[in-house]
């Protein structure tokens, strides 16, 4: 069984025929070749596949491509400015060494951006609770929390706080 879906992904409108069982994450990775969105589990626990659907973070393994028909999707590839300037959250992750192997990172950054959208000045506890759905095995979360703090400030118009040296 196949269906036709039309989505706006990272600013570009795409129309594709998909098997109805195709998950949004497979649509992004296998059909649009946007491989920045990763698959880390098969039970919607790890959050590596988090993208924004109509501005809200969604684990793209929990959504069928046909459910996303008509939606606007932003993936990690679409987060930076067109000129390549990193989104403040991306820049904060780099500044604060909030990533190591990089595999959970796209999902972590997308979740963090939505977390700050919903709560512009999160506390450490709120960040930790807000990122509970994203598993990182490398960083121990310490620097991710610092990065999200700094990223939130920068998203609110502040300057990006440097990592302590």
């Amino acid at each position: 069984m196949a269906s036709t879906v039309t989505l706006t992904v990272n600013g570009t409108t795409v129309t594709r025929e998909v098997e109805e069982r195709t998950l949004l994450v497979h649509f992004l990775r296998d059909i649009l070749h946007l491989t920045g969105t990763h698959i880390g589990c098969d039970t919607s626990q790890c959050g590596a596949c988090t993208v924004h659907v109509d501005g809200r973070s969604v684990k793209s393994c929990t959504m069928l491509a046909v459910q996303a028909d008509g939606s606007t999707v932003t993936t990690i590839e679409g987060l930076a400015a067109p000129d390549g300037t990193l989104h403040p959250m991306q820049a904060a992750f780099r500044e604060h060494h909030g990533l190591q192997c990089g595999f959970c990172t796209p999902g972590m950054v997308m979740s963090a951006v939505d977390l700050v959208r919903a709560n512009p000045t999160p506390s450490e506890t709120e960040i930790r609770e807000g990122l509970e759905g994203n598993i990182c095995r490398c960083t121990g979360y310490h620097n991710i929390v610092k990065a999200v703090m700094a990223g939130a400030e920068a998203m609110n118009g502040g300057t990006l706080k440097a990592a302590a040296e």
């Binding site: 946007l34 491989t35 920045g36 969105t37 993936t75 990690i76 590839e77 987060l79 930076a80 990193l86 991306q90 992750f93 780099r94 500044e95 060494h97 990533l99 990089g102 595999f103 990172t105 796209p106 950054v109 990592a163």
Partner: peptide, 14 residues
């Protein structure tokens, strides 16, 4: 600051 982060943060890892 890590040089590899540029690709990992923009979904360009391989």
């Amino acid at each position: 600051r890590r040089r590899e982060d540029a690709r990992f943060l923009t979904g360009r890892g391989s």
